[in-house]
Computed example of a mutant assay.
Amino acid sequence: MEVREGGRRARTEAEGRTTLHSFSFGAHYDPTNTGFSSLVAHNDERLPPGTGYADHPHADLEVVSWVLTGSLRHASTVGSATLAGGDVQRLSAGSGVVHAETAAGAGTTRFVQAWVRPDESGLAPSYVREPVVLGGPGAGWTCVADGDGGGVVPIAARGTSLHVADLADGVRLELPDRPRLHAMVVAGPGDGAMVGERRLVDGDVARLLDEGGRTVTGVGRAQLVVWSFERA
């Protein structure tokens, strides 16, 4: 298990926005950290009201956004929506798409956005947005996005899934049983999760190899956002 603490992750601050990066991104180039399995970007975004990203292009990426708090307005050439906390969207960029994202609410909007390489290039672009209802602390995992048809939204990457779960103090949960896991903790001050003997707090990320099924224990209230992969 490799842990990257939220306070030490690469940070971009521009026009009021703050982004924490899990991987090499933009000006933060690191040839030893360009991705994990098919995951090539995993950004923890915080947007004050009215800030965001103007129209910009993507191609051959599955762009999955999980909204934690606030309201996010998404506009693209293949679909548009306003997302609230607990909503997920998937933009399949395929052969090429242009989109924009803006904080739409009165407070700061926080969302986690992942870029996943699809199995095939040049697919027809598409967009979907769905609300997600988690079962609450102790209810286990909700499959939010999945490449094999089992999630709230589909992605064009077989053997790849996004699972989310809420934890409460002392609640134990087994991580998805897959060989590669990328887990992020979302929590308030003083809260977090224990992964083995390592305590993870808000914004911390753990990458695990051959550790599927390891037990995680809640410390206060926390949410786990976990990408899992069947192959390298």
Rank of each mutant, 00 (worst) to 15 (best):
A114K: 05
G122I: 10
A103M: 08
A106Y: 10
H74P: 04
R73L: 06
G86N: 10
S95R: 15
T108L: 09
T69K: 12
L91N: 02
V88K: 01
A93T: 08
A84M: 07
T77R: 01
A104R: 13
P118D: 10
E120V: 15
G86V: 12
L123D: 09
V116A: 10
V112F: 15
S80K: 07
A81D: 15
A114E: 05
V112S: 12
A100D: 00
F111A: 08
S121E: 15
S95A: 15
A103Y: 09
V116W: 09
S76P: 08
T82Y: 02
L72Q: 04
L123P: 09
G70D: 01
A75R: 13
V112D: 13
S71D: 12
V112G: 11
S71I: 05
A84L: 10
T77Q: 01
G107A: 15
V78E: 14
E101T: 06
V98I: 13
T77M: 00
G85P: 04
T77V: 01
G79V: 00
H99M: 03
H99D: 02
G70H: 02
G70N: 03
T77D: 04
A100K: 00
F111N: 06
A100P: 00
S92A: 15
A103V: 09
A104N: 12
V98A: 04
E101W: 11
V116K: 10
A106W: 11
V78M: 14
S80W: 08
H74K: 03
S121P: 12
G85M: 05
G122N: 12
Q113I: 10
L72V: 04
G70Q: 02
V98W: 01
R117V: 07
S80G: 10
G105D: 06
R117Q: 07
A93N: 09
L123M: 13
W115E: 03
G85I: 04
D87N: 14
A106V: 14
T77C: 00
G85K: 03
A81C: 08
T102Y: 11
F111W: 06
S121G: 14
T77H: 00
W115K: 07
G122Y: 13
A100G: 01
D87A: 10
H99A: 05
A81S: 14
V88N: 02
R73T: 06
S121K: 14
T82K: 05
G94Q: 10
A100L: 00
S76D: 09
V112I: 15
A106I: 13
S76L: 06
L91Y: 03
T82W: 02
D119H: 11
G96D: 02
Q113L: 07
V97S: 01
D87Y: 13
P118R: 11
